[in-house]
Design a protein around this nucleic acid. Structure first.
Lengths: 335, 335
DNA sequence: CAACAAGTGGCAACCGCTTGCCGTCCGGGT
DNA sequence: ACCCGGACGGCAAGCGGTTGCCACTTGTTG
């Protein structure tokens, strides 16, 4: 490839000169298929390749105000729940010719602001996976840029969520079938929309299925949170436990073991999410699988759709189905 | 904040007009501290805040050719080894006022090309965490943009790597101290630079410590790879095993258990990386901890330093120390 | 007291690409 | 032969900052 004059990289001007056409024609040859004569376009493309021309995204963005990037904001990169979400979002972005910008907020509202501030004018859309911000703050942002919230419902802002209700119902049914008559819910962060839904789902299913349901917590949605929950649970045991998420379930099992108990012999435990940890742990965790990957894909696709002007976007939440994955941490109650 | 005239967002021109100064002054007020009178600057900042002015990164990038973004390219977002790396990189980027762009290559060389192609002109620097590309291809890229390679050495391109040699030596010493006299290495991907170093480290340490060392593999660096390795290992058992990474070690343990064996009673196993899985699994995995977080931080910082013109950047690899984390998967050999 | 330097602010030319508008050329309809 | 519309290419005005250079003030200095 010919050396671009100066040290700069090749621009449409260089290509234009080399191909003997106007810069505008080069531009159109790339971004307006059909607008320019096929042969001319072909020649331009050839020259461009020859010169190693690569469009400058900044320049393009400057005039079109579209950057071909979306941002995914999450609280904690190391939280296994997000891996598949991120992967899904990246995949969808990639397929649409977009690039994904990833920012972590470290659970800090201030950092979330800072990060958003920085990304806002850089991207065409934003996926908020675990925002600490208030509904109104989110609505504010959504006014400026397309936003999709994940696993949370903010009126007026499109979102995609897990079907927590059905998921919990399945968990309850499963336990019911195994003969359990009481179940304890290990609550996650109170402020979390998902926690609210999950608890509600379990309680409602419990009513119908004649399962006595109680609740301990809230605890942090971590392994340690689960350990702590185990201690509280121990004061008034139930034969089955459903945790807010897998991490807590794992912590709970650890706690039970530390107290000399055994899962599932002494207590059946069900997690939520089906993160990569759930099958690694011993005993392998029975859990309600969140559609993590689809969550990511759908969120990314929708945010792109909006940014491309899908005005018809309903502001309704898209709810994605869960699936119960039965492993070793649950068993029938001793007769 | 006042509505920006038209639907557009506020620009320096709007601010300039409102503050009664020239656009250039507004620009300098923000990017050339000291260049403009303190009071004027203050007034401008006030007006800007009032109007909700936010600099357009694209426009800035267009003239400065600096985008304040770095790209981190990795093969697999769901590989726990990368979590801390990504987090470290993001942290370093954030602190430096940069934004991180994350792209996954799905282990596909073609996608890696595509992704790089796309990111190349968008970022100020690139961190390559697990490139499939050839050394020369990487050198090629490094000529165009600052690049840091992680856990691989490419002559002429700065890199930051784990001290595999010392790490393996520590693993060997640990096993030696426990009375083991033979150890089997479960090899990871042959093409991997890290695998080569780890194997070499173990072999060399074995020589010195009078440990008989053998090797099975290569296997994919996954849980399943580890399971497969267990089968091969079983044909000629050793009292201890060191795996290329944690995932394989976990798979190996699973394989052993499936064959009716027990860890560490029947065989001690040591992993590598200290990923988040290693303490979740049962028995908790003894492993050589890679400096995952520092790897990410250092890589990001260095790539930024280069992009800021640290010409003195030695092309020597920065090697970061490991640490042996002893858990439950290793034990003294029965006398 | 003139000459000069430092401190400030404005002007205008980019950075590279997009796009509305216009002119030319050409084939076809009448 | 004349007119008209479509296809195609060029012109030039942005998009929103940055920055070299110049001009004007002031304070300083010989």
């Amino acid at each position: 490839m010919a050396a671009p004059p100066g040290g700069r990289s090749t621009t449409i001007y260089d290509v234009a000169k080399a191909a003997g056409v106007a810069p505008s024609t080069v531009s159109r040859a790339f971004s307006r298929p059909g607008r320019v004569n096929a042969e001319t376009a072909e020649r331009i493309r050839a020259v461009a390749a020859e010169l190693g021309y690569r469009a400058n995204p900044q320049a393009r963005a400057l005039s079109t105000t579209r950057t071909s990037m979306i941002a995914v904001i999450l609280a904690d990169v190391t939280n296994p729940v997000f891996f598949e979400v991120v992967r899904g979002a990246e995949l969808a972005a990639y397929e649409a010719g977009y690039t994904m910008l990833l920012a972590e907020t470290q659970e800090s509202a201030e950092r979330e602001r800072a990060v958003l501030e920085r990304a806002l004018s850089t991207v065409d859309g934003i996926v908020l996976t675990s925002s600490r911000m208030s509904d109104s703050a989110i609505r504010q942002i959504a006014k400026v840029k397309p936003v999709i919230v994940l696993n949370r419902v903010v009126t007026g802002v499109p979102s995609v969520v897990t079907d927590n209700l059905r998921g919990m119902r399945r968990a309850a049914e499963h336990l019911g079938e195994l003969g359990h008559e009481q179940v304890c819910y290990l609550a996650g962060p109170e402020a979390s929309w998902a926690d609210g839904m999950r608890w509600r789902g379990l309680r409602e299913a419990g009513m119908e299925l004649e399962l006595r349901v109680r609740r301990v917590g809230p605890y942090p949605p971590t392994v340690n949170g689960g350990v702590a929950a185990a201690a509280e649970w121990a004061r008034q045991r139930t034969s089955a436990v459903v945790a807010y998420n897998d991490q807590m379930a794992i912590g709970f099992m650890r706690g039970v073991r530390a107290m000399g108990g055994q899962v599932p012999r002494d207590v059946s435990v069900v997690g939520f999410d089906n993160s990569n940890l759930s099958e690694i742990v011993t005993p392998a965790l029975t859990t309600v699988a969140s559609p993590l990957h689809s969550l990511g894909v759908t969120a990314a696709r929708n945010v792109l759709a909006i940014s491309r002007g899908a005005q018809s976007r309903s502001t309704e939440a898209v709810v994605l189905p869960t699936k119960l994955v039965v492993r070793e941490s649950t068993s029938a109650i001793e007769a």
